[in-house]
Structure formats: structure tokens, C-alpha cells
């Protein structure tokens, strides 16, 4: 999950906490219309209604439990999943003559990663493609060794992206490169 998604999730949870807490405080001070602050949290009337509607109430509780478990499962999967390319399948090009050229996007991504790690000082490279296939957005992360001159890697990354664009026949609409440099005494 992205940082923005986390922020949104916890903003919603915070708003729910504030709203729930404020509603409970209002009920406690008798501000809520029709509320009885002297009543128990599980009042006799509520229990009576619950028992009257059985087994639908218990079935509803089971369904709510299943929904909660499902949302927990989805959230857990989203947390543990590594970011993957949003562009899947094939990049396709109509030629000047009849026919199309199709190239698997995964193959292109791996090729660019291999090209990037071929530069001296680049320990690891990761590429993610997003956006529409003819003009994809290219996101690159490179891990550099401590003694690598950054300017030289920049030139190499630029050249690798140009080679990628020529080979795939698609010019990146947006290029974003993040470099992480290992710590070490200069």
C-alpha cells in the first residue's frame, strides 16, 4: 500500500474514533435526543429486540464477522504485497505494413533492470511501469554503492531509458528515478 493510501485509511479511522467517542459522550451526558443516560449499555429493550429477531440477528452477526475477516484479509494482503507493474500483458504496435508487434511488458521491465544493473556501482535496480502502454510512466529505483559517482550513474540511467524507448518503441510519458546510496566513509 502506498503512503497516501495509509494516510487516507488512518484519517478515516481517526474520524470514526472521534465520531464514535463524541456520540458516546453525548449519550452519556443525555444530549442525544431520545437517549436515556441512566440505561445500561446493553439495555433490556435492546436485548428483547435481539432475542425476538433471532436467528436473523445471529446470522447478521455471522455475516458481519465474515465481512470483517474479509476486509482484514484484503488489508493484510495489500500490506504484504510488493509494488508491481500496473502495465501487464503486452505492448502492442501497429506496423506500416499489415500486422502488429507484441512484446511482453514483463520482459521489457526485466531487460531494463538488467541494463541498469550493468552499470558499475549499481547494486540493484527495480522498474515499475504504470499508465497507458503506448506512453507508459517509468518508475526506477537504483541502489548505488558508496563509492559511485552519482553523475556517471545518471548518464547511464538516461542512456538505458533511451535504449528502452527505442527497443520498445514507446517514449515514457513520465520518468521518475530514485537513487539510494549505501552509507560509507567518503
Amino acid at each position: 500500500m502506498t503512503d497516501a493510501a495509509h494516510r487516507l485509511l488512518w484519517t478515516i479511522i481517526a474520524l470514526l474514533l472521534v465520531a464514535g467517542g463524541a456520540a458516546a459522550l453525548a449519550a452519556s451526558y443525555g444530549v442525544l435526543p431520545g437517549g436515556d443516560p441512566g440505561a445500561a449499555l446493553l439495555s433490556a429493550r435492546l436485548l428483547h429486540q435481539w432475542r425476538l429477531a433471532t436467528p436473523w440477528t445471529t446470522l447478521a452477526a455471522a455475516a458481519a464477522g465474515a465481512l470483517l475477516a474479509l476486509s482484514g484479509h484484503h488489508l493484510l494482503r495489500a500490506e504484504l504485497r510488493r509494488p508491481r507493474s500496473a502495465v501487464r500483458g503486452t505492448l502492442s504496435h501497429p506496423g506500416r505494413r499489415p500486422g502488429r508487434t507484441r512484446v511482453a511488458a514483463d520482459v521489457l521491465v526485466h531487460a531494463l533492470e538488467r541494463d541498469l544493473t550493468g552499470a558499475p556501482g549499481v547494486r540493484r535496480a527495480r522498474v515499475v511501469l504504470t499508465g497507458a502502454p503506448p506512453r507508459p510512466d517509468v518508475w526506477i529505483r537504483v541502489d548505488l554503492t558508496a563509492d559511485t559517482p552519482t553523475a556517471r550513474v545518471r548518464e547511464h540511467v538516461g542512456a538505458a531509458v533511451r535504449r528502452f524507448a527505442t527497443t520498445a518503441g514507446c517514449q515514457p510519458a513520465h520518468l521518475d528515478v530514485t537513487a539510494r546510496i549505501e552509507p560509507g566513509r567518503p
Binding site: 452477526a61 455471522a62 455475516a63 458481519a64 464477522g65 465474515a66 465481512l67 470483517l68 475477516a69 474479509l70 476486509s71 482484514g72 484479509h73 488489508l75 493484510l76
Partner: peptide
Amino acid sequence: LLAGGVLLA
């Protein structure tokens, strides 16, 4: 959520 939901269900 996962553990609580399964228990409740």
C-alpha cells in the same frame, strides 16, 4: 480484523 472477524462469524 481477520482474527476478530473469524471468531465473531
